[in-house]
């Protein structure tokens, strides 16, 4: 690892580890917990859109399924540790089955149709979660309040639990996209027919990428319940979850992995600030307008997202300085 990268890693680790001690376990820490959860969610989405070239408008189906499965099992088991583990296990099982079904139904069709299918399936879950026949399980539109295990009762414990989750997800995704499998995904994102001609059965690769991405999004959904101790149909909402994760990934930089985390940080911070301002100025109640403007600005001035643009500039600078050095010799 390059010294600069190592220094960045150490500094950011120290900053995140020490944050609750320096700034207290109040609003700032709660905001960071949300950023960690949605950052992991956005990174899982980047595995799809950025590394495999698959656009999904229904990624909330995984996030929501994770959240509901953990919340339902926790509420039925009185917030025990076993309940938490079982909730995650059930969530992961459903997620695997769901991604396989969606993949077999739609990954063979063209990208646009796949996006439409995911949008439709996501909406089905939204409707199911709020439906009256499923009220005994989901509590319909009232949502579910849950008790978390005793060892997660302090804000500090929740903070470190989520931070460890984020670290594991980040490490896993980093290793995954730099593995031979990740290289193949990048190749088929660029040109499916060439990847086919080189001997790859691309449907299998796309399915596995979709499955892994969905699994991480499901885990992030479960972590959302750990943070909020509550779940409602909003976790399946297109606008506040599915499209937001698209926005987070685009703002941070598609195909950069860590961009999703940065995008989640910016959007959730902005959301938080706008909510504070709305107390004094009602015009800020319409946060969607701000996000619309942000999206237009990013697409216009930073088409590769924040991290993508920074990487591009660094690459250009390195190329220019190397060319300059060569021309001097």
């Amino acid at each position: 690892m390059r010294p600069v990268r190592l220094a960045w890693l150490l500094l950011s680790t120290l900053f995140l580890m020490g944050f609750p001690f320096v700034f207290g376990s109040g609003g700032g820490t709660s905001l960071l917990e949300q950023i960690f959860v949605f950052g992991a969610f956005a990174m899982s989405y980047d595995l799809l859109i950025g590394y495999t070239g698959i656009v999904s408008f229904g990624h909330a189906m995984f996030f929501g399924t994770g959240a509901y499965a953990v919340a339902i099992v926790l509420s039925k088991t009185g917030g025990s540790t076993v309940g938490l583990l079982l909730g995650f296990l059930i969530a992961m099982t459903i997620s695997i089955l769901l991604s396989l079904v969606v993949a077999f139904l739609s990954l063979r069709v063209r990208h646009t149709y796949f996006a439409m299918v995911t949008l439709a399936v996501g909406q089905v879950f939204f409707v199911l979660a709020g439906s009256q026949p499923l009220r005994p399980l989901t509590n319909a539109n009232d949502g579910i309040s849950v008790l978390t295990p005793v060892w997660l009762n302090s804000n500090l414990a929740v903070y470190y639990f989520i931070l460890i989750f984020l670290a594991i997800v980040t490490l896993f995704l980093h290793r995954f996209i730099h593995s031979p499998f990740g290289e193949v995904l990048r190749a088929l994102r660029e040109n499916e027919s060439r990847a086919k001609a080189l001997g790859y059965r691309i449907f299998h690769y796309k399915t596995l990428a979709f499955l892994l991405s969905g699994l991480i999004a499901t885990l992030a959904g479960g972590m959302y319940v750990v943070v909020e101790s509550f779940v409602s149909t909003s976790v399946y909402d297109i606008g506040s979850v599915s499209l937001q994760v698209v926005l987070m990934t685009i703002v941070g930089g598609v195909g950069t992995l860590y961009g999703g985390l940065i995008g989640a940080g910016i959007i959730l911070w902005l959301q938080n600030e706008l909510a504070n301002l709305a107390g004094s100025y009602p015009v800020f109640n319409h946060a969607e307008i701000a996000f619309g403007v942000l999206y237009v600005l990013v697409v216009r001035f930073l088409p590769n997202g924040i991290l993508g643009t920074l990487k591009g500039r660094k690459g250009r600078w390195r190329w220019t300085s190397q060319t300059f050095k060569k021309s001097q010799t």
Partner: peptide
Amino acid sequence: ENILVVHAT
């Protein structure tokens, strides 16, 4: 990497 991708299998 263009070659490594092929070597993967």
